[in-house]
Write a protein that binds this DNA or RNA. Sequence first.
DNA 1: TAACCTTGCCTAGGACTCCTAGGCAAATAA
DNA 2: TTATTTGCCTAGGAGTCCTAGGCAAGGTTA
Lengths: 191, 191
Amino acid sequence: MVRAGLTAERVVGAAAELADEVGVDGVTVSALARRFGVKDASLYSHIRNLRDLRVRVALRANAELADRLEPAVAGRAGRDALAAFADAYREYALAHPGRYAAAQMPLTAEDIAGLDADTRCGELVYAVLRAYGLAEPDLTDAARLLRGTFHGFVTLESAGGFQHSRPTGASWAAAVDALHAALENWPRPSP
Amino acid sequence: MVRAGLTAERVVGAAAELADEVGVDGVTVSALARRFGVKDASLYSHIRNLRDLRVRVALRANAELADRLEPAVAGRAGRDALAAFADAYREYALAHPGRYAAAQMPLTAEDIAGLDADTRCGELVYAVLRAYGLAEPDLTDAARLLRGTFHGFVTLESAGGFQHSRPTGASWAAAVDALHAALENWPRPSP
DNA sequence: TAACCTTGCCTAGGACTCCTAGGCAAATAA
DNA sequence: TTATTTGCCTAGGAGTCCTAGGCAAGGTTA
């Protein structure tokens, strides 16, 4: 019998593609096996179970996102850094909706185990905020504002939640401008 | 044989409670049947299928949310209205995570069919913005900013995405203040 | 080259879930 | 009381997750 040449890497890669096509919930052991022309049971040599498969997709997505955010922020500051970060973030989320959704999955300490993609994204937000001269606890509040706004906007946009005829890209640019304004006029400015 | 006294209303109500306890994905026909002490098949007299059940939970959640937002906004304007809307929104999302998640589900025109809860929430956002004196297209951009920020923040918070020791409630208040500042210093102010 | 071992993929099968078809009996209306 | 509706049932098919155990393709060593 001819082998399909499965590998943990290839399996997770196909799962990520599948997620972008049919959503995270559509990432199923059976569907993935069908895609490889293989029986369900064959995949269990490469993954522990369905959750494990999805966790690996989430970790890969987090790493991919961090890999796109890093160069966007590098060498920029203030509004430039904010806009570059925002656009890279949105582009990834819209281009890879399934992976992005997977990346939002709650992970345990076991799941992460040594990998740092999760914290990398978080640190990049703080890097973007550096030029605005905020101190704690405003820094944390501002970071949460940015994460919330970016995540919420792209989630609603991706799900088709914005019905108005206005192009969403224009609203995104306006949101970034508004966040910049909010950061510059931060309610309780640090000394 | 003693009947359980099922009704479409009761079934959807139990599904909503179940969603808050175990998440939307945990809302399953079997789980719901177990909760009523009834066989799976018995539920199909009251719902069409699993998707129909979840859609009904989503519609109910939307209506409940609108019912909480309306009195919060009534009789207030500007920052007061913004803060009241925001707090009511967050309280509902945190108190009813499963229903709130269900409410984000993409619905077809069939699903909505005459109900207006979906548009009610949207209109309330515009009501909140009224006092800021924005005109189109800034109005749409601002509405999308608010929706995105509120949704993103509570989603991340609810999923445990905010790890820092800083209380999330304080960050929420800061975010609302920052949005207020952004709306008052809107980048391209309307005439 | 021949024997060995690893491992990729298989078959078989159990448990759970969604859903349909058709039936009996409890609740309600005539 | 009889007739009708309807709430809940049993039976069963299909899809999915996952385990146990087996065979043979590939690479490794004698």
